[in-house]
Design a protein around this nucleic acid. Sequence first.
DNA 1: TTAGGGTTAG
Length: 508
Amino acid sequence: MLYKSYITANYYCNLFRFCWSCGFSSTAHKVFDKSPQRHGHEGLASFVQGNVLGKKSPKYELCSALICCAKTLNSHLGSQIHGKIVHSGFDQNLYINSSLVNVYAKCGLMGDAMKVFDGIELHDEVSWTSMICALSQNGQGGEALCLFKEMMTTLVKPNCVTYVSVISACTEQESVFRCGELLHAHVIMLGHESNRFVVSSLIDYYSKCGRMDKAVMLFGSCLASDDVVLNTMISAYTRNQQGEEALKVFVKMRDANASLSEHTLTSVLDACGALAVLQMGKQVHGLVMKMGSDQNTFVVGALINMYSKCGDIDEACHVFDQAGYKNNILWTSLITAYAQSGRGPDALKIFDHLVMEKRFYPDHVCFTVVLTACNHSGLLDKGISYFKKMTSDYNLAPEIDQYACLIDLYARKGDLKSAKQVMEEMPFDANAVMWSSFLSSCKEYGNVELGREAAYKLFELEPRSPVPYLILADLYAGAGLWDEVKNIRKFMNENGVRKSLAGWSCVG
DNA sequence: TTAGGGTTAG
């Protein structure tokens, strides 16, 4: 088994300085890439600040400095260097501008990134790709595709990197899902299909739109020796409820003495959690300790989730306690672990304690967890009050997931009128999940009128599903409306909805 | 000397 060796951050920092001072900037970059992620960046950035900003800088040094800024997410230093670039008259240099786009994009400053991009007079494939990638990585997949289309109208031709960026953009939202297949056709025509970066982005794309047949085909056709392709495939299987296949890939990786990274660990822990295989999860935990990855935030989060999904809340807490650095995501993972193990009130206690001490600022996902915990613990009024706090205390506009929780809270309480009012007044269209939970509550409380309305909405939203027909029939039966029950059976036949009538005993 | 794939919370 190959493990990443751990050398101190100082070693990397000194080596970086040495390479840089000798003018070996590309070697310096390699050193920078290998430096441990959580250490040394600050030191390197301050070195850049001292050596680039204070001197008359050649173009390549400015470029190198910008790469460091992008990697350390240091937009402040990036802006300072930008000022120097303008002052030195290098503001039309393509290399520098592509790097600048990258710095701003990595720091989430999309307006600045676009401004630099728009200011470039003559683009090359890298400058186009930098901006396409920037949009893709900032959740603007649709815009990334538009820019790609614009690029296609120019004389500059996209390369492998462009395809990797634009294919990744297609996984962002369902509206651009179908574009991925078209891009795959481009890739085949241009002969990029054997590029491992392209392959892994395609596997990821297909797995995210549920086309595992295509993902498996691509995986089978490549050499599969690349660790990222293997990790992508483990995640792809897990995402598509094929955890056993995911574990098989992992076992093969171990048998082949493949290099295991922290990505591998998180992906395989996710598979263990999905399958609830505690023993296997513990073995991977052993590997985590052996590799010295027990302080990596991604790995710690994956461990907490794995133990929580396997029902071992004590071990989940232990992992959390051992983590030196605790961010919002880890706190949310811990709250989720309590909520998932039926300890909703404990989950809420942690949340209240944290916000009281101002140790973390809850986000949308955290509120979804809290609201779900309230829902599952029957703390309906408390849940509604948390929902209101989102806006009043934290200035967070609720999103569709939190509205779904609120609707569920009102409906479970039997306040069907309020639940329906929320569905009508919220800034989103009520989806099938919302109407389904609403319909179930209508059945629970015997509200025929609202139940009928919900069922008819579901007939439109999910025309092939027999479930709303069956629930509505149950509701009618509970109210003694036997003629209506018979009509439902007729209605199902007319609409071509098929379902075994087992369980529909109320019809008699 | 510019750009790129996979990982954590419901």
